Amino acid sequence: MAGKTIDPKLKTALELGPIVVFFAAYLLLKDRVFTIGGTEYQGFILVTAGFIPLMLISTGLLWKLSGHVSKMQVITLVLVVIFGGLSVWLNDERFFKIKPTLIYLLFGGALGVGLLRGESYLQGLMEATLPLQPEGWMILTRRLCAFFFGLAVLNEVIWRTQTTETWVYFKTFGLTAAIFLFFMTQGAVFKKYGIEKDQG
C-alpha cells in the first residue's frame, strides 16, 4: 500500500495519544482496587487492560490513514499486546513493566546485528527523513545501539527499585525525553555527515 499524506498533528496524536491517556487514567485510578469476577485488580492493571485496545485502535487508524506503520511500531504493538495481556491475565503488573526493557533490547540487538555485518539498519528506517553519508549512519547507529541497551538497563533498575508511580512517570516522560535528548545531542554528526536534499 502506497504511503498517504496525513496531517502531522493527527499523526502525532495517534502515536502519543494512547500514552497520554494511559498516564491520565493511571493518575485517576492508581489508588483504587476493583473486584471483577471475585478477583481484586489494582487500578494499574485496569489501566493496562484499557491501553491494549487503545494501542490497537490508534495503530490501525494510523495505518489506514497513512498507509504505513514502521517495523518499530509493529514490534511495540505486539509486545504491548503480549506483555500487557499477561499482566491483566495473571494480575501481575511486572510483565507490563518489563515490556520497555524487551523493546529496547530488541531494537539495540537488531542494530548490533547490523553493525556486526557492517551495515546500518537504522539507515533503512530513517534515510528518507534524515539523509546522511554512510559514515554518519554508522556512527549514529553505534551510538543508538549503546543508547538502547542503556535504556533497557535503566528501565530494569527503575521498575525493580522504585514504586509503580515512579515507573509510570519514568515511562511516560523519562524515556520520551531521553530519546529526544539523544537526537538533540547528535547535532555534530548531522552537521558533518548531512546530505543536502537538493544535492545531486
Rank of each mutant, 00 (worst) to 15 (best):
L111V: 12
G84W: 02
V20T: 10
W89Q: 09
S120R: 12
W63H: 03
T39N: 12
I103N: 09
Q123R: 13
G174A: 15
I75Q: 06
V88M: 03
L151Q: 07
L105K: 03
F51Q: 01
S87L: 08
L65E: 07
S87E: 02
L10T: 13
H68I: 13
L106H: 06
G124Q: 11
S120P: 02
W159T: 06
T185V: 15
Y26M: 03
L14T: 08
A25Y: 00
L61F: 00
V33N: 11
P53L: 04
I139R: 15
L116S: 09
D7Q: 13
K71D: 04
F107G: 06
L116G: 05
F83L: 14
F96A: 14
L10F: 00
S70G: 09
D92G: 13
T39S: 10
E127S: 14
Y193K: 14
R143C: 05
S58P: 04
G3H: 06
R94E: 03
E165F: 04
Y26E: 00
M1T: 14
F95D: 01
L130Q: 06
K171Y: 01
G136Y: 01
E156C: 10
A2Q: 05
P131F: 07
I82E: 00
E15K: 10
F34P: 04
L54N: 04
G84I: 02
S58G: 02
F44W: 00
T176H: 06
L14Q: 05
L79R: 04
V74I: 14
P131H: 11
E40R: 10
L116K: 04
G150K: 05
T166R: 12
F190T: 13
L62G: 02
T185D: 03
I98C: 09
G194D: 05
F34I: 04
G194F: 02
H68D: 06
T5A: 11
I57T: 01
A152R: 02
F190P: 05
L175R: 12
K192W: 01
G114Q: 12
G85R: 15
V81M: 07
K71C: 08
E135Q: 12
T161A: 06
L125A: 09
L115N: 11
L144V: 10
F148D: 13
K197T: 05
A188Q: 08
K64C: 01
I103H: 04
L115C: 04
V153E: 09
L16W: 02
L29D: 10
A152G: 07
Y26R: 15
W89C: 08
R160L: 11
W159I: 13
V80P: 00
Y104G: 09
I158F: 04
P53M: 12
F180G: 06
K71E: 01
F173Y: 03
A110D: 08
M55L: 07
T59K: 11
R160N: 05
L181R: 14
K97Y: 01
G114V: 08
A24T: 10
V113S: 13
S87P: 01
R94Q: 08
I57D: 03
F148R: 06
I195G: 10
